[in-house]
Computed example of a mutant assay.
Amino acid sequence: MKTSLKTLVITSFILLTTITISAQEFYGKAYYFSKSTMDLGRWGARLSEAQKKQVMARMKNRLQKTYVLSFNKTESFFKEDEKLDAMSGATDSWGKNFTQGDLYKNVKDNALAQSQEFYGKKFLVKDELQKIEWQMGSETKKIGNYTCFKAAALIPSDELTWYNFSWDRLRSNEPQTDSTGVVKQPEIKMTQVVAWYTPQIPVSHGPSDYWGLPGLILEVSADNTTMLCSKIVLNPEEKVEIEAPDKGKEINKKDYQETVMLKMQEFRDSRGRRRRS
């Protein structure tokens, strides 16, 4: 009975807010900052505390970032706030090959368009939005002036970082056999995602690839990274214009991943040949 009552309260809250806003043109900007932790592993265990702090300071521009999400009822545009990020220190030329580019999402058409640059070549990745099976709960908390509800989902880890690269992913993509020589199916790793959304802003948008809840996502945590909204501007005097990126070689997510993997495999093999010569 208590669960049903809570569900009814949430539903009524969402309906009331949606009816209030649905009659008017609606757009805005949400500002996020992200914080990530990094496990230094066995290598880190050999470092002094002072050395660990130096490593973390050098990695700050990777571990702490700021973003802007522009949105209307059906579209959103998510990008890193490069001006603020530049304050964190020197640019990371290697890391920029594997960071998320400008991302356009259209929840009505179930479509995304993301600009990516890999070693100087521009790509325009077009695909469907990542499907997310959210489990919505009744737990609430306040983020700024907004009442937020909790939701959780399990998402394939590779889908959350499809634009990224790791040597572990390259190794896992190589055929593995068991003791009898039979090729083993690769393990699909899943990531637990926890989001907090507010029905007071009834759009199905969120930072990065997250979307699909009955309210703007103000906080989301996945693996070792948390994104938190620090500021929201609704219906500013200057209308928010949202345009999808349109430059670069058009490709889908799967083909983009294969392109990156192939290039990095060639890079690894060429280094191995130079070492043997």
Results as ranks from 00 to 15, higher is better:
Q116P: 00
T99R: 14
K60H: 13
S172P: 05
V240I: 03
K239P: 00
D39E: 08
W94N: 15
L218G: 03
F13N: 04
L16D: 03
P186S: 04
L216G: 09
F78C: 02
A45Q: 05
V220M: 09
T11L: 11
G206K: 03
M261I: 01
P156Q: 02
D246L: 04
I132W: 08
D168I: 13
K73S: 05
N97Y: 08
Y31T: 05
D246I: 01
S76T: 08
T74M: 11
R268G: 11
S34Q: 08
S138Y: 12
F13P: 02
K150V: 15
R271D: 11
Q114S: 03
Y27L: 06
I217G: 02
S36P: 02
A222S: 12
L262D: 13
V68M: 06
T11Q: 09
S70D: 05
A113S: 10
G206A: 01
N235T: 02
F98M: 12
G206Y: 00
N72L: 04
G181W: 06
T191V: 07
R171E: 14
Y27H: 14
F26K: 09
Y67P: 07
P236H: 04
I143H: 11
L216R: 11
R274L: 12
D209N: 09
S115Q: 06
L103K: 02
R268W: 11
A111L: 13
Y119S: 08
Q130G: 03
L160E: 01
V233W: 08
L16A: 13
T147G: 05
I251T: 00
M1T: 12
W167K: 15
V183A: 07
E258S: 04
W162M: 00
R171I: 13
D178H: 05
E133H: 15
T99A: 12
L170W: 05
A153Q: 14
P156G: 06
G206Q: 04
D269H: 09
E128P: 01
N97S: 09
F118D: 04
F33Q: 11
G101F: 06
Q135D: 14
K239Y: 01
T180H: 11
K131S: 12
W134I: 13
I232H: 05
K96P: 03
H205Q: 02
